[in-house]
């Protein structure tokens, strides 16, 4: 092989390697969950669960029972209350809900509203049985339209499935929503 050809081969190698290094997906995108997009109002199927939104509305304040005491929470934004019905498929499963806002920001379920008997983060979903649960988010009102609910099995969501469901209808805005047990 001539000196020129060898040089060309090395250069081609460098270009190829550089291209690979710069286009390689980073850790976060390599290990993100597999997303299933669900049409509004339909049932979303994940690897370990299936879920459907049954109702959603906005409230300025939330009232709930906290160990026998009535608590009322207000917010600088609004509360988005999403009620859903979910079941496990392969095994008893717990779920994590996140609201993906219209701006792309991610809102976790508000820990200011503790609902041990109906809150989604406290429930176990059993295979073959649908159970109701509620997810309460605290966010600016303009994050709701154009946003989606994301559901994942609790724990490490990397390389697991995530279901994203947009709202079909948003109920009328309420001043105070009472969430019972």
């Amino acid at each position: 092989m001539s000196r020129g050809a060898a040089l060309a081969a090395v250069l081609a190698g460098v270009v190829l390697l550089g291209g690979m290094m710069n286009t390689k997906p980073d850790y976060n995108s390599t290990f993100q969950p597999f997303v299933t997009n669900t049409n509004p109002g339909e049932e979303g199927m994940g690897r370990l669960f299936t879920a459907r939104i049954t109702e959603a509305h906005i409230a300025s304040q939330i009232e709930f029972d906290h160990w026998g005491e009535q608590l009322r929470r207000d917010s600088a934004g609004v509360f988005l209350i999403v009620r859903l019905s979910a079941s496990g498929t392969a095994r008893s499963t717990r779920l994590t809900a996140i609201w993906l806002g219209a701006s792309g920001r991610q809102y976790s379920v508000s820990s200011r509203v503790e609902l041990p008997s109906s809150g989604i983060e406290y429930k176990w979903f059993q295979p073959g049985l649908f159970q109701r649960a509620v997810a309460v988010f605290e966010l600016p009102e303009d994050e709701i339209k154009g946003g989606r609910l994301a559901l994942m099995a609790a724990g490490d969501a990397r390389l697991d499935s995530a279901v994203q469901i947009p709202l079909q209808t948003l109920g009328p805005k309420q001043d105070v929503t009472r969430i019972g047990p």
């Binding site: 920001r105 976790s108 820990s111 605290e138 966010l139 600016p140």
Partner: peptide, 11 residues
């Protein structure tokens, strides 16, 4: 009560 979470865009 003790602050547990901060939501984006809600100071």
């Amino acid at each position: 009560e003790v602050l547990q979470q901060l939501q984006p865009r809600l100071p």
